[in-house]
Design a protein around this nucleic acid. Structure first.
Length: 420
DNA sequence: TCTGGGGTCCTAGGACCC
DNA sequence: TCTGGGGTCCTAGGACCC
């Protein structure tokens, strides 16, 4: 049996933890730049606010309906996520952290699983203050279904749903919209609709599997099998090491100058590459990209340039050097760019690094020692203390708009809560 | 006026080889 | 006049997730 422990409205719950007076108020947490809704409480959902909806479309609800909004405060969320995951790991030996706010737990061999599931929920809530829902079933996809039902019917289910027999599974799937199944997005849902499939039950028991394979590829077929209780997504299959590391941001205002693009990309490389070194990987390929707003009818321009390193590297300075050249080659004057980013991929472990024939290893080695020294200094003195000159002088927040940001209650002394 | 960021997985189709 | 077929590798891009 697999359990899925999922935090309720996670970012909002984190904010609420430090503002208990907001316990029954509608809350929304906004994406970077205060762009759109990324987390909503039930009260905010009741106001009709959609996931990903742009803030300007519902800003008026702050006045009319007492909606409270927060800019995203990732230091806070990451810290609380660590506490939640730590609590779960204390209770179950086998935990697969799937995202910042959810984890699968392997419950094979446990007796009285439903009682234990309730205990997990109770303990996490008691020890961290973050409300969670728990779904338990034979496969990950069914556990997702169970969890969603638990979340939707908190009063009825007490936040825990256990789908352990055919009858309860059938009943659950018959009223479960196909578009809400994990892995079925809007494109797949509309294809299935054409086949007359509207519920998870109809999908699971659809006879023509060849057609499903053709329309939804093998991932779609796996979902179907998982709904029938056949395990396709093995427990523990999430990677500990990332296969690719991205860093990108939207700008608060359009950027017209090449130096602004260069500076931001240098900063993204700085962040992405130090993240990469923390997982002890080397990068074989790098994309840099920047583009104008896709939402406006102005002149559009989109740039993506790839560079393949002859020898996998961890050298920020070298990568930055290459990236600056790529921007020089591709930049077009007259466009206002709204977003830029960097992707490092084809990441390899140290032991798998293929050496080139014609490289000067003395120089490479010296450079790698330099980079590691920079990492050590930044670790000790605070990140961003030492970085390449291309990153610019002001310690940039990338010109991000964050009007509604809460204090970093858990990560800076100044922001600690006072107790009167 | 104002629309996120970071991931994974899969397929189609081109290039290339024998 | 007639111009294969099978395999692999690579890349771009779609779909989806949280």
């Amino acid at each position: 049996m697999i359990g899925l422990v999922d935090c309720n409205s996670f970012y909002c719950s984190c904010e609420r933890l430090f503002r208990p007076e907001l316990s029954n108020r509608p809350i929304v947490v906004l994406s970077n730049n205060d762009g759109c809704a990324v987390s909503r409480t039930d009260e905010a959902k009741d106001l009709g606010i959609k996931m990903g909806q742009p803030f300007f479309e519902f800003k008026n609800l702050c006045k009319s309906d007492g909606l409270v909004v927060f800019s995203s405060n990732f230091q806070l969320y990451t810290n609380l996520s660590d506490r939640v995951m730590g609590t779960i790991k204390d209770m179950c030996p086998l935990v697969e952290v799937y995202s910042v706010d959810e984890a699968f737990v392997n419950l094979n061999g446990f007796t009285e699983i439903d009682i234990f599931a309730r205990r997990i929920k109770h303990t996490v809530e008691r020890d961290t203050g973050i409300p969670v829902s728990v779904g338990v079933a034979k496969t990950k996809t069914l556990a997702k279904v169970a969890n969603k039902i638990a979340k939707k019917n908190k009063v009825h289910t007490d936040g825990v749903v256990f789908l352990d027999n055919e009858k309860s599974i059938d009943l659950a799937l018959k009223s479960f919209p196909i578009k809400d199944i994990w892995g079925i997005g809007s494109a797949s849902a509309s294809k299935l609709k054409l086949l007359g499939i509207n519920t998870a039950y109809e999908f699971a028991h659809y006879k023509n599997e060849k057609l499903i394979l053709k329309l939804l590829t093998k991932t779609g077929l796996m979902i179907k099998h998982e709904l029938l209780g056949i395990e396709c997504h093995k427990f523990g299959s999430s990677h500990e090491k990332k296969n690719e590391i991205m860093c990108s941001r939207s700008f608060d205002t359009p950027k017209f100058h090449i130096n602004e693009i260069k500076e931001s990309i240098a900063n993204f490389i700085d962040l992405a590459s130090s993240k990469m070194r923390r997982q002890e990987s080397y990068c074989s390929r790098m994309d840099i990209f920047y583009y104008t707003s896709p939402f406006q009818d102005l002149m559009k321009h989109s740039v993506c340039r790839t560079y393949k390193f002859s020898v996998p590297t961890l050298d920020t300075l070298y990568m930055t050097d290459i990236a600056m050249k790529l921007v020089d080659e591709s930049f077009k004057l007259g466009f206002g760019y709204k977003k830029a980013g960097v992707k490092l991929y084809e990441l390899v472990n140290i032991e798998n690094v293929q050496l080139g024939l014609f490289e000067n290893y003395e120089i490479i080695d010296r450079r790698h020692r330099l980079i590691k020294t920079i990492d050590r200094v930044n670790l000790r003195e605070g990140s961003g203390v030492l970085k390449s000159a291309s990153c610019g002088a002001q310690n940039s927040g990338f010109g991000m708009k964050q009007v509604y940001k809460s204090p970093r209650y858990l990560t800076t002394w100044k922001s600690l809560r006072n107790v009167d």
